[in-house]
Design a protein around this nucleic acid. Sequence first.
DNA 1: GTTCTCACA
DNA 2: TGTGAGTA
Length: 149
Amino acid sequence: MMNSRAKAAALEMLESSNSAPQEQLYGITQLCDEFELTPRAIRFYEDKGLLAPRRVNGARVYTQRDRARLKIILRAKAIGSSLEEIKHYLDLYGSHGEGRAKQLQWTLERTGAAIAELEQKRAHIDATLAELRLINETVRAQLTAEKST
DNA sequence: GTTCTCACA
DNA sequence: TGTGAGTA
């Protein structure tokens, strides 16, 4: 629990305590506005291990990196990835050595599967579109015929 | 305004 | 995969 003035003061302290390249910081409301999310959703992602913002007097403070991760989360969500899958994708960024090879293998398989699923959906959509166009034209022809009767 | 937790779909 | 309510 922290009012916005206290948070602003805390943010300022953080920024001024780091001498050189001050990292841009964000509050949860800023991210919500920017990505059109609710605070509940962002906290939900954190709860699932997709985000790990720092805390300043209890309030969440997000870095550019958190912001970049959020972008990835939303893009992956948009193509139907589960949060659990997205977590794996994100873990790829920080992994090295032996673990990284497994991560890459997993990502290779998972993205391959996702590609196949999306292509199948596209085929289904194309087929449905063809059917609907046929129906549309048939009905149009009937309407024209009945009007001239 | 922001936090957390519990309930709910 | 989230939302809503109640709370401090």
